[in-house]
Design a protein around this nucleic acid. Sequence first.
DNA 1: CATACGTCCTGCCAGC
DNA 2: TGCTGGCAGGACGTAT
Length: 281
Amino acid sequence: MPELPEVETVVRQLAEVLPGLTVGEVDVVQPDLLNRAPDSFRAPLVGSTIRAVTRRGKNIVLALSGPRILAVNLGMTGQLLFIPTEPGQDPKKTPVWPSHPGVLLHLGPTGALVYADVRRFGSLRLYSPEGWKKESARLGPEPLDPSLDGRAFWQALQRSRSPIRSWLLDQTRIAGIGNIYALEALFRAEIHPQAQARSLTKNRSERLLEGIRAVLSEAIAARGTTLRDYRTASGDSGGFGPSLLIYGREGEACPGCNTPIQRVVFANRSAFFCPSCQKGS
DNA sequence: CATACGTCCTGCCAGC
DNA sequence: TGCTGGCAGGACGTAT
């Protein structure tokens, strides 16, 4: 699921409700989601207070007293849900309790935070502030950060022989983009997904960066794309699905020229594109 | 170092 | 109706 707009949506919601709350009991239902043994995951968390909720790439970053950092990556099917409760009410007894709970953080009488994940490709990783700083430094720049300029983006592309879609999915090159928004941005910029990164002209790469920023911003405004599993922190679906121009639309008419949209598979993933509008492979 | 590919896991759905 | 194969938003490890 979850790419930058979906993660940003969850982060914005959680930033409204979590700061100031203190972690009580921690239930680990699926230990394989954690980056350490359940006991050493639990111990530093219990009793700590949530200070801030931010995003780095596709990671939800909870800053805790201690200090500690809890980084949550939703993988393909992860959900991070805030469950409001009445005092004394069991979050598991609420109508919004998910079907595949992985980790539950009790947050006092007013609510709980549950991570749920059908396929369990996601993760909850606990770090020291220094440890997280190192992890974060492995990721590429934030596409919506204005300090990423068109020239730096183009120069980075010039150094790679990878297909541009693969380049965009590599989190160490640019952080937060996944298959849906990579393909949407490439369609907007009229670039073939298999075009070599370094084949892009400066103008074309600037159009690509503009396309990335536009589609991410529009998707955030719509609270993300729900294909199946993605939910906001309050359990709602995202509204951007109908606005996808190319993703999942094999055989449909290109909105620009009416040519049937094609699907190719490379690097083990589907790529949708208009063979007429998107050249350069 | 850079790039390419298989793998982790489960559920759903089209097609037979 | 029931089974099977294909496919899914991500990321990491390994091989070349």
